[in-house]
Design a protein around this nucleic acid. Sequence first.
DNA 1: CTTCACGCCTGTCAGC
DNA 2: TGCTGACAGGCGTGAA
Length: 277
Amino acid sequence: MPELPEVETICRSLRCHVEGKVIRDVEIHLPRLIKWPSPEDFRAILVDRRIRVLQRRAKYMLFYLTDGWVLVIHLRMTGRLYFRSGDTPADIAAKVVFHFNDGDALEYSDARTLGTLYLLRHNELERIYGLATLGPEPLSEQFTVGYLKDELAKRKGKLKMVLLDQRLIGGLGNIYVDESLARAGLHPERKANALSDEEIARLHASINAVIEKGIGSGGTTLRDYRDGEGNMGSFQEELCVYGREGEACPVCGSAIVKTTVAGRGTHYCPHCQRKPS
DNA sequence: CTTCACGCCTGTCAGC
DNA sequence: TGCTGACAGGCGTGAA
């Protein structure tokens, strides 16, 4: 569900509620979500530790705790983190609940239960393979046109697949890849290593613009996604192609097409994003 | 090394 | 109305 803009929005909405809070207890209703250490140790280590700062890296949320521990949460498809003040009713469907000393709580719920939670020392974070191998993020200093050009040159696959690879760019998912390609006017099945310099520059600018607007809109709420206070995002109103099969392209009016590329639902405008034959 | 199909889970929705 | 199957925004694994 959540991609970089959604995770960033959740982090922003949670910081003022959780930073500085001391964990009093942890309820674990679905132990298999805890990937490291054992659920028993996970709980025992968290109890009495304070959340110092909450940071985000791509789609990972990192809660830096006292004594060098870091709680790492990846929401995958349907994970949700919701801050609940002590005087409001608990979510009985929550899979993991972090109770704070002041009576407030942070609830993790997850319809498809594909999310992952870890508790590691700050110098052990590379044990999470996906976190250790993340590429630079959109809008970061390292994500330059030159970087994108060099990386695309090494890839023979289709653009759609390459842009979803978190080792190349950290934080893009299915929605923002489709939107980036639409705004750059590039067909999702173009070969990554066959783009002109001008097309690469356009793609780079489009990725940054889409992610920046996505964050500015508080993310994209198509179904499940809410921020840490339960608010919906509004970027769904600005989507050009994603979820708009059969609707008119905002640029040329052609009907948006949906296909499957690299096993993922893929939306594009057949006129603005022509595939050179 | 890259590329790609598949499995993981469950809720929702279209079609019958 | 009730059932069935396809599908869903992510990622890790393993095979080629």
